[in-house]
Design a protein around this nucleic acid. Structure first.
Length: 656
DNA sequence: AGCACGCCGACT
DNA sequence: GTCGGCGTGCTC
């Protein structure tokens, strides 16, 4: 690239917070030709002999550093693995999450595979044929496609129904929407990134894309791939062609050439939350990347997350609705159990039972339940205390009617269980899992085929013939032509979950299932009333989310404000919190005692995010560099705990 | 993380 | 007088 620059500014590949900045190195003359932004390099660190891996972030000719510079040891390969825009994205995201850029780079850039890289460099790549745009059905072209071309930010309501593809497969309408917009982007000569929560969603988009674009324009980049496959796909992003790049959360970091669109499907699905430090959510990465690169940004979902709702209310993101509202026929149903004892056993109210029986004459019926297995929980038949695992004290459940109890936490079988409270040996089942519901319903509808789809039994599709499909939320198969009826059974149990976002979560689970129904098919929401039931029945889902957000504003809960949890030893946490003293728009809950230290929650206005992150980051670095190995309580041995951790935007900061 | 530098106890 | 203990701090 530059070819003659004399100094390389290098990002060291290290998780140490104190190394999270650029280090300057002289480029020996013989390396200057190959040096380019983004190439992997090896550089000496501290003393000769110690060599660290890193990436060239910038090439420059002068430098502020007053000391003498070392030389770059070597350039690993000519591949520009860390695209400059991905580096600035990593830097910005790390700064706003009080984390290291290299932690994000590790998510963005797959590990190098020498063989894969060599064959990729050697391969001939003739230019790909041109792509022609396709229509995006269901939306006003000006509202959606037109605005996307102008580089806007959009929150779009997905159309809640299924579509058949030319090959005969059925997918959600949303997948066709994403495919069409991605193809429009590629037809303009730009690349599109599509981030989906899991592989089942990915398969739908993939199928929708297959119908409208040549497969060599599509790149898969996801966690299911082997390292070699992933690296190969990653390298394919670098060849300058406009592509559709599809994958799960870390696909937002793909080095797309001429990025035109970032699309995120169902951004409130928890799978979009990155479990690795610095825990940056797909949504935030997409927002920052769109801002930096000026691409278009699309959040598509049947429901809108409270986070996106906030951005809509700020005017930062523009809402787009379908042209014509064809919504599922949702029927809230009180729990008046059927006269049929079998239906009552299966918790089916009489009206729902009748609907299901009628629908079963026509085709498949979906029954959504909260939990897999037979009985989710067991209690002592004598004293009613919850049955617990002998080994880890986890709660016990039954996987099938005839199985021995097993532990939800460690999986150990509890044969000859004894109650820890009263010494009794008999247990009683509490609740019904997918398997037990299937048994009960099988009895209630004799002769009907029963399909169980849950985490363990993956079923992606079912034919149009009559069948009862019992599924845990999120694992619903797609039925050819759509389900003739949908029963949402365990609403009450789902709502009992202890989480700040239960309401939103339930709406997402229910609306995603309702979108699998055939046009006009009844969707029976059992045992739930009130605003949630109304929101689903009227399909005014974002009104509910708006009300929810208003509540959170009153309570000063996220996403009305940001939160950062600070954990560690008492001293370290106190010191970190001191750094926030007197900041406006910041308040601190705790610290409170935990198992191995203390924990505080910092609440902050978005406007003070940069300042708070900066100060907490400085505290982490101070803690890592000075006064290491503190001695624990009395035993004089070094405490092995990390003494200070900061986590921004934990989706569940108030649990635990 | 590693590794060097630096300021207090037993020693040819 | 100095050899070396590991607490403290830095890494272009």
């Amino acid at each position: 690239m530059t070819g003659s620059a004399s100094i390389a500014r290098v990002l060291i590949d290290s998780p140490l917070p104190q190394l999270d900045r650029l280090f300057d190195y002289r480029l020996p003359a013989e390396l200057r030709a190959e040096a380019a932004p983004g190439v992997r390099v090896r550089v000496p660190l501290r003393s000769a002999g110690r060599i660290a891996d890193g990436y060239v972030a910038e090439l420059v000719d002068s430098v502020d550093y007053p000391g003498t510079l070392s030389d770059v040891d070597s350039i690993v390969s000519s591949v520009q693995a860390l695209a400059p825009e991905v580096y600035s994205l990593a830097r910005r995201l790390a700064d706003r999450a009080a984390g290291s850029a290299s932690d994000i780079v590790r998510l963005a850039v797959p590990k190098r595979q020498v063989r894969v890289e060599k064959s990729w460099l050697a391969a001939e790549r003739p230019p790909l044929p041109l792509v022609s745009a396709v229509e995006c059905p269901g939306y006003d072209p000006d509202a959606l496609a037109g605005t996307l071309a102008a580089g806007a930010r959009i929150a779009c309501d997905a159309i809640p129904r299924l579509v058949s593809l030319p090959g005969g497969a059925w997918v959600g309408h949303w997948a066709v929407t994403l495919a069409a917009l991605a193809v429009q982007t590629v037809a303009r000569g730009a690349s599109a990134i599509i981030a989906v929560p899991d592989h089942r969603d990915q398969d739908q988009v993939q199928a929708a894309l297959d119908a409208v674009i040549a497969p060599d324009r599509v790149i898969r980049l996801d966690a299911r791939q082997s390292n070699a496959e992933r690296y190969r796909a990653f390298l394919d992003c670098l060849d300058g062609e406009a592509r559709v790049i599809i994958g799960n959360r870390s696909v937002v970091y793909a080095p797309a050439s001429r990025l035109g669109l970032i699309a995120v499907w169902d951004d409130s699905d928890p799978l979009h939350g990155e479990p690795l430090a610095p825990y940056v959510h797909t949504r935030d990465a997409a927002l920052v990347r769109q801002e930096q690169q000026g691409s278009a940004l699309l959040f598509l979902g049947h429901t809108r997350s409270a986070e996106v709702q906030r951005l809509v209310e700020l005017g930062y993101v523009t809402p787009v609705a379908p042209q014509r509202a064809a919504i599922p026929r949702v029927i809230p149903t009180a729990e008046q159990f059927s006269d049929s004892p079998q239906a009552a056993a299966a918790r089916i109210p009489s009206s729902a039972w009748q609907q299901a029986r009628a629908a079963l004459a026509e085709g498949p019926v979906l029954v959504q339940v909260a939990r897999p297995g037979y009985a989710p929980r067991l209690v002592c038949a004598n004293c009613a205390h919850p049955a617990r695992c002998r080994i880890c004290t986890g709660p016990l459940g039954l996987a099938s009617a005839s199985a021995a109890p097993d532990c939800h936490w460690c999986g150990a079988l509890a044969t000859n269980w004894t109650c820890a409270e009263c010494g009794g040996h008999a247990y009683r089942m509490v609740g019904q899992g997918s398997v037990r519901t299937a048994e009960d319903l099988g009895r209630a509808f004799p002769g009907v085929r029963v399909v169980i789809a849950d985490g363990e039994r993956t079923v992606t599709s079912v034919p149009a013939s009559p069948a009862l499909v019992i599924s845990t939320r999120g694992a619903e198969p797609i039925a050819t032509g759509g389900y003739r009826a949908v029963l949402l059974l365990d609403g009450e149990r789902m709502l009992a979950r202890e989480s700040m976002r239960v309401g939103e979560d339930c709406l997402r689970w229910w609306s995603n299932a309702a979108a699998l129904a055939a046009p006009g098919a009844p969707v029976m929401l059992v045992g739930v009333s009130g605003p949630l039931a109304t929101a689903l029945a009227t399909w005014r889902l974002s009104d509910y989310v708006a009300a929810e957000l208003a509540d959170r504003r009153r309570l000063r809960f996220p996403p009305a404000v940001r939160v950062a949890t600070v954990t560690g030893t008492r001293d370290a946490v106190d010191q970190a919190l001191q750094a926030l003293d007197g900041m406006a728009g910041v308040d601190i809950l705790g610290p409170t005692q935990t198992d191995d230290g203390v924990r505080a929650i910092v609440r902050l206005d978005y406007s003070s995010g940069g300042e708070v992150a900066g100060r907490l980051r400085a505290a982490v670095i101070r803690n890592a560099t000075s006064r290491r190995r503190r001695t624990a309580g009395g035993n004089g041995r070094p405490a092995p705990l990390p003494t200070l951790k900061v986590r921004f935007d934990d989706p569940e900061p108030f649990i635990e």
